[in-house]
């Protein structure tokens, strides 16, 4: 029998409660992360990626509210936990790396001490033992262990982001949620860091939920990918399958948006129009105003999820 997935997000719904009403920015999103997997969530800005990451860790603040669904972690629904239990889950079971985390490092405290603080908060270790752990964590992410004595401003952006990843690894959680972890970095640094993340994953066997707007990056790193559009999952598939045989018109369009480095420099078509305003989403399929294949049904009813292959689901009326 196969073990249950590490993380199971089921029909997650998040709404922002604004003066003019409820805005549903995550609409019945379901996906799983198994042990040792890197699962990607791709989507354009505003599609709900960060909201999902924060919802999983229960870090959403008002006016945002989770209004439906379940987030099962090791079989337990995180949405039912109290604040004390949640604190035990965060960091130790699930940690979060965000795009802005590297600027959130405390400028007046050495990175070694910041790492020790992160460890101490959960485990009563001595300062000396803690610092030794900090040193090893830095080496793990490809930094010189002696850098424990450095202050954040003495490190480059790429090095700071490595420190943030070291912090996320500190308590060896089985799941790390990474929201645009390399977006602020240069291509070469980004590539080095992603190589490091992939290597660590191979070594330690933790799972990653990897969130980015950059589909081409995701195709390289992830085992499976979910494509979000306006708060809904348009398609989910194994990475190779998604690249080779995308089925949803939006996924197909998106894959056609990246110029190639080699081969013929043919004109790209892109996707016309712009993503909808979440306050006034179009009825039916939210992609229909930009879709070249829409049917009458697309204007009135949201397409159901259809399983089209192993681990491959598509939400589109074109599919039987």
């Amino acid at each position: 029998m196969t073990p249950p997935p590490l993380l199971e997000v089921e029909d997650l719904r998040v709404e922002y409660l604004t003066a003019t009403g409820r805005v549903r920015v995550v609409d019945d999103v379901s996906f799983t992360v198994r042990r040792g997997e890197i699962v990607g969530l791709a989507g354009e800005s505003g599609s709900g990626k960060t909201t999902i990451a924060l919802a999983i860790l229960r870090l959403l603040k008002a006016p945002a509210a989770i209004t439906g669904g379940r987030v099962l972690f090791e079989g337990r629904d995180l949405l039912g936990l109290g604040e004390a239990e949640l604190r035990r889950v965060r960091g130790r079971k699930i940690s979060l790396v965000t795009q802005s985390a590297m600027s959130a490092l405390n400028p007046v405290i050495t990175i070694g001490e910041q790492l020790v603080d992160a460890i101490e908060e959960h485990e009563g270790v001595s300062r000396r033992r803690g610092l030794e752990r900090a040193r090893r964590l830095l080496e793990l992410v490809g930094l010189d262990g002696a850098r424990v004595a450095s202050y954040p401003h003495e490190l480059s952006g790429g090095m700071r982001q490595r420190v943030v990843i070291a912090m996320a690894l500190a308590l060896e959680p089985p799941l790390i949620v990474m929201d645009e972890p390399t977006t602020a970095l240069d291509v070469v640094v980004q590539r080095e860091l992603l190589g490091e993340i992939a290597r660590l994953r191979d070594q330690r066997g933790f799972s990653i939920l990897f969130i980015t707007h950059d589909l081409s990056l995701m195709l390289e790193l992830c085992t499976r990918i979910g494509v979000l559009y306006a708060g809904r999952l348009a398609e989910a598939a194994p990475a190779r399958q998604l690249a080779a045989a995308p089925r949803h018109p939006y996924t197909r369009g998106l894959l056609g948006c990246f110029p190639e480095l080699h081969g013929a420099a043919t004109r790209l078509v892109g996707i016309g129009g712009t993503p909808p305003d979440p306050r006034h989403p179009p009825p039916g399929c939210r992609f229909h105003p930009r879709c070249g294949h829409s049917l009458p049904a697309c204007h009135v009813s949201a397409p159901p999820r259809t399983v089209v292959g192993p681990d491959h689901e598509v939400a589109c009326h074109l599919l039987p």
């Binding site: 070469v188 980004q190 590539r191 992603l194 081409s216 790193l221 990475a239 480095l261």
Partner: peptide, 16 residues
């Protein structure tokens, strides 16, 4: 620079 461009063949097939 060119070796750092992500490519869909996946899993960091080409080293930096």
């Amino acid at each position: 620079l060119i070796s750092a461009v992500p490519d869909a063949r996946g899993s960091f097939a080409t080293p930096l």
